[in-house]
Amino acid sequence: MRTTKMVSEGKFALLLLLPTIVLLAGLLLYPFIYSIYLCFVNLNLTKPWLGTQFVGLANFTTTLMDPEFWSSLKITALFSGFSVAGSLAIGLIAALVLNQKLMFRGLFRSLLLIPWAIPLVIVGMIWKLILHPNYGVLNALLMQTGIIHKNIAWLTEPGWSFFMLILSELWRSFPFVALLYLAALQTIPKDLYEAAKVDGAGTLHNFRHITLPFLQPATLVLLVLRTIDAFRAFDLIFALTKGGPANKTEIVGLYLYKQGFMFTKFGESAAGSYLVTLLILLLVFVYVKLFKLKDIQ
């Protein structure tokens, strides 16, 4: 009786997925295939009479031979390294602290949501203001406490701009890490610590042998997510420095955007994007392997 009354599973599934299939086919699958095609052609948008030319691997080689691509990749690697390591470290400390019985713990946890939830462009705006050379609060604070005696142009001095970028990136990214670690900490059974206490183990010993092993799965997830995030960073830097001064903060996302939408080198931009994606996949692969290796030992 059931079978006669109800549509078959296959047909029903197709019905349910139809809107998704249509949308993703048109605005994700087709653009994806088109972008692969773009990697191998030159649209000649500036010389339309030439038409579209097949150029083989030229878009890849041009990108790979562009020193600006490599310098942006180097900055991205540095940026990602500092951002991932820094956010995991600060996030872990914040989570360990907030895992204690504290007054206002709930409020603290709620406040962590603020930097995470707001648009990165506004994060950029906030820090641009704080770091303003003449009216910024950071200079004022450092001047009043006598740490510096002259205003510093944090975002336009080549020596400082990168670190200030990292500072604002960490402000944005550590709360997510803290929230994830906090959730992971709460899965650790309390009696493990109590048993260790009976054995006379110290806090440090507990941290290494109980806490850290329990945090391992969350750490792998965070490493992967944060690395992808950092390698694809764009909004914050666009709002804060636009890559300056003298390309000192030009990460690869910005480079690819400029190639594509400012210089209309669509092919090179697409080719570069896929090179970066390959690099991200490679990193994720290495992370997973490293964590597996650790499990075996």
């Binding site: 993703l24 994700l28 972008s35 773009l38 694809r232 955007y257 594509g260 931009s269």
Partner: peptide, 19 residues
Amino acid sequence: FILFTQMIPGIAVLIPIYI
């Protein structure tokens, strides 16, 4: 495919979408 879409770089597909 759903998982794979998460790996597609935004800038690369935004070019065709723009076109």
